[in-house]
């Protein structure tokens, strides 16, 4: 059991390494996409500067606090797309019957699919996350805690994406809804909790768990609480297990299109 887990981690690591090497083949395109993504994210500072010019605080949050929402969200989102970008291609694989190539390998299918691709611009998200943290809330403690929190955040986001994408096993063309819900998840992460009414907050704590990927980590960075941290870890484990269950339940519904293909 332990050897199997170890082997899977080794394969995932190698897969990510080769994805990275592939991306870096064209250095100019790779660097351009990273720089553009940093610029993209940074442009939203103007949005918040303008809002804070209109209103001194947003709830009890200052500009520095709001930038924590951005740091945590872009860091988690970036890490998820660096490590597990393949999961976002799952609906295409299911709808076009391209999953066969992954099923024939003596590896964990979900882990193999998840690490099959890497989004170069996600490095821009990850770098921006650290930059936002360093510029607006620098401390060594914050950097260490932030690193741990974005790992949890990326696992929550990826698990949520696995659950949504696995619905394509049951409902054809569900990918349109999936994309919309992922966008809502991200928007929920980027905006401070205080702007939402109670009903919306309940949705972000349950059906679309943005609160666990962003709001709780931000609260932990602002004021660490062991209870909240444990809740976050328990939720992360819970959603990962749920993602595996939904994926493998859905996989039983998969039908191949007998498409011949080669995967490197």
């Amino acid at each position: 059991m332990l050897t199997a887990v170890k082997n899977n981690f080794k394969i995932m690591f190698l897969s990510i390494k080769y994805n990275l090497m592939r991306c870096m083949e064209n250095n100019v395109a790779f660097m351009t996409s990273i720089i553009m993504m940093i610029f993209n994210n940074a442009s939203f500072i103007i949005q918040w500067l303008t809002i804070f010019a209109l209103k001194e605080t947003v709830g009890s949050y200052t500009l520095n606090d709001v930038m924590l929402f951005w740091a945590v969200s872009s860091g988690s989102f970036g890490l998820a797309h660096i490590l597990f970008n393949g999961i976002h291609k799952l609906p295409d694989y299911i709808e076009e019957g391209k999953l066969d190539a992954y099923l024939t390998m003596p590896k964990n299918v979900l882990c193999y699919v998840a690490t099959s691709s890497l989004e170069p611009s996600a490095f821009g998200d990850l770098i921006y996350g650290y930059l936002a943290l360093i510029i607006f809330n620098f401390s060594i403690k914050n950097i260490l805690l932030y690193t741990l929190l974005i790992i949890l955040g990326s696992l929550i986001f990826t698990s949520f994406a696995v659950i949504l994408n696995s619905i394509t096993f049951f409902i054809f063309r569900f990918s349109y809804v999936t994309e919309a819900l992922k966008e809502v998840f991200l928007n929920g992460c980027l905006y401070p909790d205080v702007i939402f009414k109670r009903a919306v907050k309940i949705i972000f704590f349950t059906l679309i768990p943005s609160a666990f990927a962003s709001w709780i980590p931000v609260h932990l960075l602002m004021n660490f609480s062991l209870n909240k941290f444990l809740i976050l870890i328990i939720f992360t484990i819970f959603i990962i297990i749920l993602a595996f269950i939904v994926f493998y339940r859905g996989l039983k519904n998969y039908s191949s299109s007998n498409l011949m293909g080669i995967r490197g």
Binding site: I51, L54, K55, V58, G59, R173, Y176, V177, E179, A180, L181, E183, V184, N187, G188, Y191, V194, I195, F196, K197, V200
Partner: peptide, 23 residues
């Protein structure tokens, strides 16, 4: 397919409307 995307548009708009309501 556009009708499916309306869901995302609606919720994004609701978030921004919440922001302006708050401001």
């Amino acid at each position: 397919s556009i009708i499916f995307r309306i869901g995302g548009f609606t919720i994004t708009m609701l978030i921004l409307i919440s922001l302006w309501n708050f401001i």
